[in-house]
Each structure stands twice: as structure tokens, then as C-alpha cells.
């Protein structure tokens, strides 16, 4: 998990990109901290790829800027690129070259010597059995692995990945998830990845930024991420401070959160609802409503981005498809 006090590694300031009348990205402000896995979630066309392209200086912003590792990103930001690994959507490899040649070429370009790390990357990305195969003959999933391998060759401090699990089968998705988790936990690599599949990033990310129509509409932190998808009992109350006291002191309940001025969410011990009710009433707290939550993070995402289950291209639909495959 990223440390909230850690140094900012990726920063965007008023980042804006327009294509004619289309506002692809609008006033985007992001702060990604060292060691964090930050997922950039949005439906297709939300502005994820454009943002990533601006981060990598492949697209010029109309306004604002991107700083990575303290370097203002611009074409030829060679010093920054030495510390960044990236995989863009539909990651291109040289199809006429074998997997090994693709990796060797990147190694040469980076001025690295052949060492055990190259072998480790090959192993990590599950490329060992494909080394002599032309990249053009690989499945989409294996091309993604190759692209990821290439991005890892120089032990980057920051990984920027655009839809890294695109085209991967469920086992491949799990493997990539595990790999990214390890890279972040063991090597302290900061990972910024985009996705339209909520369930994937939810299991992986320390923070999720939701982008919709080019705007960052919500950021969900580590704690909230883990609470969002939990069932909870939501109470609307007259006095949350007194209610918190009653829950803690009378019921011994600490797994709750004060959400707003008049709301408390209890995340466990639902079978003790009657006891909570009695304790609150005895403490002089008026309860105006009490209900079990039905909203998951996915529902929340759909609500924010205006999607619905019938839309094939929404994250939810894609997500459902992925889940279907897993079954």
C-alpha cells in the first residue's frame, strides 16, 4: 500500500487536451505517490489513453503539464524515460523479431548488459517458452506480457500501463496482477495503470481515480476501497458523536465509520442490529433510518459514469464477461 506521506512521483497539473471540440481531458489534477498502485478507471473514451499519452509525452497537452520523478515530461525527456517503464494499449512489438530479439533490442537501446535480471524478467512475465517465437505470432495476451517484459528491463521506478490486462485470459490476468503487486511491494515500483474493468483494479490498487468525460470525478483511497464493497448497516442519526460513543462503549463495536454529519456505517455484527438500536436509543440518539447497504463499488462506478448493464462497452459489461470466463 502506498504511504500517504510518500513523495509524489507522478503529478499532473491542470492537464487538458482537446481534439477539436472534443474535450478529451479537462483540468486533470493527479498525485501518485511512491510505491503506490494507482488505478485510473473509466469507461471507453473517458480520456484514459489520452492522459497516459500526455504523461509519456506522446501527446502535447493544450494546457497544464505532467511531472514524473520531478521531471516535466516533454519529448526527449531522456533522463525521465530511463526511470520509467511503459506499456501502451495494443502494445506494439516488432512482429518480425522473436521475443528474445525484441527483448535484446530493448536491452541494447537501454545500454544494459545481459545479466540475470533479463532472465528474471523473462521468467516473471512467463515468456520463457516463447523466446524463439516471432512476436507477430504471439497471442494478444502474450504480446502484452512481452511489452511488460520490455518495460521492466531497466528496473524502472515508475510503471505506466494502459490497459495492461487487455486480451489476457483469467489466469493471465491473475498472473499480471500478482506480478504488479510484487513489483510494488518488493521493489517499491510505483504503478499507474488504466483500466475499464473495476474488479481487476479493485483487487490490486491502493487508490482508484475515476475519470469520466475527461474529468477526474472521484478518487477512492485504500481504506474506502476495502470498505466500499463490504456490506454495511447505514444509520441516519440525530447525533453521530454520541452514537459513536454508544457503539464503542456500550456495544464494544469499533468496525464502523462516521460518514457524514448524520450518518454512521457499521461494517460487521449485523446480527446485533437490535442491540445497537437499543444502545443508541438509551443514549438519547434519535434514529431516522436504518438500512443494509446494497451499493457496491461497481454500482457506485456505474452511477458516476452513467453506465448501465445493457451497454456492452461499459466496465460492468466487460467485467461481467470476465467473471463469466472465470466461472
Amino acid at each position: 500500500m502506498g504511504d500517504v506521506n510518500a513523495e509524489t512521483v507522478i503529478r499532473t497539473v491542470e492537464l487538458t487536451k482537446r481534439f477539436g471540440d472534443v474535450h478529451a481531458v479537462e483540468d486533470l489534477e493527479l498525485d501518485v505517490r511512491r510505491g503506490e498502485i494507482y488505478a485510473f478507471l473509466g469507461r471507453n473514451g473517458a480520456g484514459k489513453t489520452t492522459t497516459i499519452r500526455m504523461m509519456l509525452a506522446l501527446t502535447r497537452p493544450n494546457r497544464g503539464f505532467v511531472e514524473i520523478l520531478g521531471v516535466r515530461m516533454a519529448p526527449n525527456a531522456v533522463r525521465a524515460f530511463e526511470r520509467i517503464g511503459s506499456v501502451l494499449e495494443n502494445a506494439g512489438s516488432y512482429g518480425n523479431l522473436t521475443v528474445l530479439e525484441n527483448l535484446e533490442m530493448q536491452r541494447d537501446l537501454l545500454g544494459l548488459k545481459r545479466n540475470h535480471w533479463v532472465d528474471e524478467v523473462i521468467e516473471m512475465c512467463g515468456l520463457a517458452e516463447y523466446l524463439k517465437r516471432p512476436a507477430g505470432e504471439l497471442s494478444l495476451g502474450n504480446r502484452q506480457r512481452l511489452a511488460l517484459g520490455r518495460a521492466l528491463l531497466h528496473k524502472p521506478e515508475v510503471l505506466i500501463l494502459d490497459e495492461p490486462t487487455n486480451g489476457l485470459d483469467p489466469v493471465g490476468i491473475a498472473a499480471i496482477r500478482e506480478l504488479l503487486r510484487n513489483l510494488s511491494a518488493e521493489r517499491g515500483i510505483t504503478v499507474f495503470l488504466s483500466s475499464h474493468i473495476l474488479s481487476e483494479v479493485q483487487q490490486l490498487a491502493d487508490r482508484i481515480g475515476i475519470i469520466h468525460q475527461g474529468r477526474l470525478i472521484e478518487e477512492i483511497g485504500y481504506d474506502e476501497l476495502r470498505q466500499r464493497n463490504r456490506d454495511y448497516l447505514e444509520l441516519k442519526l440525530s447525533d453521530t458523536a454520541r452514537a459513536a460513543w454508544a457503539l464503542e462503549e456500550v456495544c464494544g463495536m469499533r468496525d464502523f465509520a462516521v460518514r457524514e454529519e448524520d450518518t454512521i456505517r457499521i461494517f460487521s455484527g449485523f446480527e446485533r442490529a437490535e442491540e445497537f438500536n437499543r444502545a443508541l436509543v438509551e443514549a438519547g440518539v434519535a434514529i431516522s433510518s436504518m438500512r443494509m447497504s446494497e451499493e457496491s463499488l461497481e454500482d457506485h462506478f456505474m452511477k458516476l459514469t452513467g453506465g448501465n448493464a445493457s451497454q456492452e462497452e461499459t466496465g460492468s459489461a466487460m467485467d461481467a464477461e470476465e467473471r463469466g470466463k472465470r466461472r
Binding site: E82, A91, Y94, L109
Partner: peptide, 19 residues
């Protein structure tokens, strides 16, 4: 071919001056 085959981004994000 780089643009046709989608390898342009790989090339342009390498730590080598574009020139």
C-alpha cells in the same frame, strides 16, 4: 512501419533522443 505496426510509442518512449 513503426506507426503502421504500433511500435512508434515504444520507440518514442525509449530513453534515446528522438533525433
Amino acid at each position: 512501419r513503426e506507426r503502421k505496426e504500433g511500435t512508434d510509442a515504444t520507440m518514442l518512449t525509449s530513453p534515446v533522443h528522438r533525433r
